[in-house]
């Protein structure tokens, strides 16, 4: 499979990465090179094979659903680009 420029723009938007028109041209070539490479998998017979979901034969551990950590909002916010009154601050989302 290969991608056209409209698909490159659509995927970039899905991935929330701004792309310039010039970048779209380059990306189309690069993405198609990678997709051509992985297309080799089409020749493998995977009839009746289960997709891998866990690499080691283990069951995920369970624990009690209780709070074990927290209560330090200032540390949580310490790396935030913008914070106000103990909250992360973002541009207006709801009109």
């Amino acid at each position: 499979m290969s991608v056209d420029q409209a698909t490159v723009r659509r995927v970039a938007h899905l991935a929330r990465i701004a792309v310039t028109e010039e970048e779209v041209v380059h990306l189309q070539g690069e993405l198609n090179a990678i997709l051509a490479f992985v297309d080799e998998l089409a020749e493998v017979n995977v009839e009746g094979v289960e997709p891998m979901t866990s690499i080691t034969p283990m069951t995920l551990p369970l624990r009690a659903d209780v709070v074990t950590d927290g209560f330090y909002p200032e540390r949580v916010l310490a790396n935030a680009p913008a914070a106000e009154d103990g909250f992360f601050a973002v541009p207006k989302v709801v009109e």
Binding site: R16, N79, A80, P81, V90, P91, K92
Partner: peptide, 20 residues
């Protein structure tokens, strides 16, 4: 939003896209 650099945008989607 929570950590890392931010590039401002007109709205939140543009902020995400420019930041990334």
């Amino acid at each position: 939003v929570r950590y890392g650099e931010r590039v401002p945008g007109r709205d939140i989607v543009e902020m995400y896209e420019k930041t990334r």
